[in-house]
């Protein structure tokens, strides 16, 4: 599991005449790719009219049905004990529910994810702003972020478990340490993309300093902070399963490892599927609508 440190770095284009730089429309974000492109085979749906929305909804359902059919077919071909089909996997979820750990697993893992994410976001905001504002800090500490991003995840996790102890704090800190560097790059880019011309305009109109910070500078960095957050969140949830598998005795990752040891493929699927569904739901029902609403000015093209 490696992380691309350059993904966020190259994500910004600086175009003074256009006012504000924006993160590239197709940032090579592992989260977005994994969720949207790999699973659903489509980029962020841009529904402009109700008919378009209906059509893209239809294709989404068709895509999911097709995926389930292929999965089922593959299951028949290789054998249900090697690859259980979708129906068998979903029925196995019911079994997990009966045994009483379905919701507790999800709850515990979600709690750890939120913890790790909050730590990583806070660190990325602080470090990214420092690097973006101070030339000295950029020169001295900039390389550290690149180094941090290139350390294999497993090494970080093992070191944190050994030094902090095998507990929830270590799981959160370890995950945050791995997730933070690409987020730092995104925030850093955002701070550097601040257009000094807009600040100059505001100063020429004698606008108070605090208002300039709040209403001229901060909105310019929002697209980058949003990019950082959504990259970080998707990376966090995939990593956390792995971190749990290595050193926790609860959560989705632990459950996967448990059934892995029993070579029970059906129950492995049953452990993973609800969580994947939850994350997809969050992506499509919360993140994307929010992003579309907040950044609708960026999609406004001259007509």
């Amino acid at each position: 599991m490696t992380i691309m440190p350059t993904a966020a770095r190259t994500g910004a284009t600086r175009d003074k005449s256009a006012g504000v730089a924006e993160p590239r429309a197709d940032p090579s974000l592992p989260g977005r790719e994994w969720l949207a492109a790999a699973v659903l085979g489509m980029p962020a749906a841009k529904a402009t009219t109700p008919a378009d929305g209906l059509r893209s909804g239809f294709y989404l359902i068709a895509s999911l049905v097709l995926l389930a059919l292929m999965w089922q077919t593959l299951s028949y071909l290789v054998g249900a004990d090697v690859l259980p089909g979708p129906v068998a996997s979903i029925l196995a979820i019911e079994q997990s529910h009966r045994e009483g750990y379905l919701w507790s697993d999800i709850g515990i893992t979600a709690f750890r994810i939120v913890g790790a994410f909050v730590i990583a976001l806070a660190a990325a905001l602080a470090i990214g702003m420092l690097l973006g504002r101070s030339r000295l800090a950029e020169r001295l500490f900039g390389p550290w972020v690149t180094i941090g991003a290139s350390i294999p995840s497993l090494v970080v996790i093992v070191i944190v478990y050994l030094s902090v102890g095998v507990n929830d704090h270590a799981a959160m800190i370890g995950t945050a340490l791995i997730v933070a560097p690409p987020m730092v790059f995104a925030v850093w880019d955002g701070i550097r993309a601040i257009n000094p011309e807009l600040q100059e305009m505001a100063r020429a109109f004698a606008i108070p300093k605090f208002t300039i910070l709040w209403r001229v500078i901060l909105p310019q960095t929002m697209p980058f902070i949003f990019t950082a957050a959504r990259t970080g969140l998707s990376l966090t949830w995939r990593l956390m399963i792995f971190v749990e598998l290595l050193g926790r005795s609860s959560g989705v990752g632990y459950r996967i490892q448990y059934f892995y040891n029993l070579v029970d493929m059906k129950r492995v699927m049953a452990a993973a599927l609800p969580f994947i569904a939850l994350m997809l739901l969050f992506e499509f029902c919360a993140l994307r609508p929010l992003e579309r609403r907040v950044f609708r000015w960026r999609r406004a093209e001259a007509k």
């Binding site: 256009a18 006012g19 505001a202 004698a206 606008i207």
Partner: peptide, 29 residues
Amino acid sequence: ATVAYLFQQPRLLPWQSARNNVAFVLEAR
């Protein structure tokens, strides 16, 4: 004295509508 500046580039806030770009400098003052 109240100063206004018209630049070579419009220097509008891209996330605000035309109306709000004008209202912004008034509100901020």
